[in-house]
Design a protein around this nucleic acid. Structure first.
Length: 494
DNA sequence: CGCCTTTGACCCGCGC
DNA sequence: GCGCGGGTCAAAGGCG
């Protein structure tokens, strides 16, 4: 009985050590036969289950061996625990990297869409099919513009939420309008402000919709549409579908859970979060797994931040902007746009990703859905990762030495990303097309496989992990983002 | 101790 | 008016 138990214990340890490569593990493995043989021969003596008539010296030597064996087992066990812990850390890191990649996708989508919308706005009836051919003049300003754009939306949100402070919001909007980086939302806000002041000068109620209460001094059809659009944008929701094992995707913001409900028709609970990066921030989000595929995480954002965001949060922020812009671009050209449609799937007009973004005007609010869960053969965005060894977009999660590295120049990254669409192949930093096309990715596993297959990524990942571990594995990248992870059980990746 | 999650209760809109 | 479902509140407890 006893030898069997010992043997089993050793085997169990080996089982857990399993494929985790460890030099110590190899050593233990090589010692197994001898250990087991010793056990078989000496078990009675070693465990004092039977008395023997052997010499005392022999017995002491056997005890010594037994002690050594116990020590080895203890060492192996501790090593196993260490490796297990390291494995968990690596898993977390990988998950975080996944989320960072998702955030990068968000950023890309927003940039692409914003370019389109801005071109459409600036050039009016000009040809909008060529804007992607000249986006590099924009990409150098991409980061700041995204930031500005998001702040503009924040103003819009404030105008909605803080009715009393509408005039000040307008002032702020007017201040912001002086910049050349005007966004569609901002311009729309100005248009609305110029045209929708009530006779009493009172702010509009939060749920106010121009089509329900036409303004007396709204004389032009454009103004009406602008009002409609702005109201829709303010009420619009951004729904993001992405594959993630974590309970939340990483968007760089701080979120506090304030409720959870079982939604009808979905066995998975719906969690409600609000932004806690600033007091009074109206942004909320709902997180729920898809009923059909629980690996798909559906995150719905509502509202706009009223505070500056860290770079890590810019991706999602710009996504919100892009969503609003998408709404705008979809509703402006004609009166029978999304306003009057119940469910209008609309390609985002991103080259090669016809179904990436859909619009839904179903009640209560129009929703922009970014579906990042499936990327068919249309040069999916998911294939972007091989081209960017520096793709962890959540900058705050990056180790400092990588954060300061030129490869994290976002404009260059954007250029790389755009080049992957096949439109800007001459840009610096891009990789050859064939290299990019070598990683068909349709799910997280394939994504991880493709990512890890890239040596550049591997190098960056190793560096990042080393730094993270070296920093006592700060909570999910530290900084002002992802703070909710620290208290969560490991799957909550803000 | 502060911040967070959990979770039941409550509120509100909507359809019948 | 009633029930249902979605969204929010807030007390309780956990965690670092």
């Amino acid at each position: 009985m006893e030898p069997v138990d010992h043997k089993r214990a050793v085997n169990e340890m080996d089982f857990f050590a399993g494929d985790r490569s460890s030099t110590r593990h190899v050593k233990i493995e090589t010692e197994h036969p001898r250990l087991l043989q010793e056990q078989a021969e000496d078990v009675n003596t070693g465990l004092n289950l039977l008395t023997t008539n052997g010499a005392a010296s022999e017995k002491s030597s056997q005890n010594l061996k037994e002690k050594q064996r116990v020590n080895q087992l203890a060492d192996a066990r501790s090593e196993l625990e260490r490796v297990n812990a390291e494995n968990q850390r690596l898993k977390l890191t990988l998950n975080q990297v996944n989320n960072n990649y998702f955030a990068l996708q968000m950023h890309l989508v927003s940039l692409m869409q914003r370019q389109r919308n801005r071109i459409a706005e600036n050039s009016g009836a000009n040809n909008t099919e060529t804007e992607i051919d000249r986006p590099m003049e924009d990409k150098t300003h991409g980061e700041s513009i995204v930031a500005r754009q998001f702040m503009d939306l924040g103003q819009a949100a404030k105008a909605e939420k803080d009715e009393i402070s509408e005039s000040s919001s307008r002032d702020r909007s007017a201040e912001l309008s002086g910049s050349p980086g005007n966004t569609i939302v901002e311009s729309m806000e100005r248009r609305e402000n110029n045209s929708t002041t009530t006779p009493e000068g009172l702010p509009q109620p939060p749920g106010w919709l121009p089509n329900k209460a036409p303004k007396l001094n709204s004389t032009s059809k454009d103004n009406e549409q602008a009002q409609q659009t702005m109201a829709m944008i303010r009420k619009a929701r951004v729904s993001v579908r992405a594959r993630s094992e974590a309970s939340m995707i990483s968007d760089g913001c701080q979120w506090r859970k304030y409720g959870q409900k079982m939604a009808k028709g979905n066995p998975c609970p719906r969690a409600y979060y609000r932004c806690t990066m600033a007091t009074g921030c109206p942004v909320r989000k709902q997180v729920q797994r898809c009923a059909e595929d629980t690996t798909i995480l559906v995150t719905t954002y509502e509202g706009n931040h009223n505070h500056p965001l860290p770079p890590a949060a810019m991706a999602m922020a710009s996504t919100t902007s892009a969503a609003a812009s998408t709404l705008l671009s979809g509703s402006m050209p004609s009166a029978d746009g999304i306003m009057n449609s119940n469910l209008v799937p609309k390609g985002m007009m991103l080259p090669g990703s016809p179904s990436l973004v859909t619009l839904s005007a179903s009640a209560p609010f129009p929703t922009v859905t970014l579906d990042l869960t499936h990327n068919p053969n249309h040069r999916p965005l998911n294939q972007l990762h091989p081209i960017s060894p520096h793709w962890p977009h959540n900058l705050s999660s990056l180790p400092p030495h990588l954060l300061g590295h030129p490869v994290y120049n976002q404009s260059k990254l954007v250029g790389t990303v755009l080049s992957s669409q096949g439109n800007i192949s001459e840009l610096p930093g891009h990789l050859p097309q064939n290299q990019m096309q070598g990683h068909p990715v349709s799910d997280t596993a394939a994504t991880v496989a493709a990512i890890t297959a890239d040596p550049n990524f591997t190098a960056a990942l190793v560096s990042a992990i080393t730094s993270i571990i070296g920093n006592s594995h700060r909570d999910n990248g530290g900084g002002n983002s992802n703070s909710t992870t620290s208290r969560n059980t490991g799957d909550n990746n803000t």
